[in-house]
């Protein structure tokens, strides 16, 4: 019986489209993996030609990926890729660049200061907030423990 306001959200479950879990995961795996593979090529390049170490080569790699993702957002390609990739294009650092660039682009019409600059982190700010808060808390805990053990 669907005419039951109290249990409506339960009762309509058979009417909801089935999420293709497996296909979504395969697509996320392939696209996310490919982005990381591209990153690995860059890292190897930076290690060989610019003498970065394995630990520090992440920096120029991330910067390069961010540049590419920002450009792809600008020419309107990144959201098309994301349609296929799902989390595969959200989880890599390119997704971070996309959230920054897309927010800035969207508010461009409101001006450079009030539009682009103030909205740059409207989506990506949470990454920095959660990153800094968790790293600070964990850092304090670790320092505290190291002092005694």
């Amino acid at each position: 019986m669907l005419n039951d306001p109290k249990n409506y959200s339960e009762n309509i479950k058979p009417f909801q489209p089935r999420i293709p879990y497996a296909a979504n995961c395969v697509r996320a795996f392939l696209s996310g993996g490919l982005i990381c593979l591209a990153g690995q090529f860059m890292e190897t390049f930076y290690i060989h030609f610019f003498h970065f170490t394995k630990q520090s080569a992440g920096n120029p790699t991330v910067a390069t990926l961010i540049l590419l993702a920002a450009l792809m957002t600008g020419i309107g390609v990144y959201d098309k890729i994301a349609r296929f990739a799902g989390a595969g294009s959200i989880v890599p650092v390119t997704g971070f660049a996309n959230s920054i660039t897309s927010a800035a682009l969207e508010h461009k019409s409101e001006g450079i200061v009030l539009g682009i600059a103030t909205n740059l982190f409207s989506l990506a700010g949470e990454v920095i907030v959660f990153g800094v808060v968790s790293a600070a808390v964990l850092g304090i805990i670790r320092l505290f423990i190291e002092q005694f053990f």
């Binding site: 920096n59 120029p60 991330v62 910067a63 961010i66 540049l67 920002a70 450009l71 957002t73 600008g74 020419i75 309107g76 650092v93 971070f96 660049a97 920054i100 660039t101 897309s102 800035a104 682009l105 969207e106 461009k108 450079i112 682009i116 600059a117 740059l120 990506a124 920095i128 990153g131």
Partner: peptide, 22 residues
């Protein structure tokens, strides 16, 4: 993380300056 954040701000800003949302 300075490299990542700096490049994200810089490139995000520049792209927003020169492109239009499609």
């Amino acid at each position: 993380t300075s490299a990542g954040i700096t490049s994200a701000i810089l490139f995000g800003f520049l792209v927003a300056l020169f492109f239009k949302p499609k």
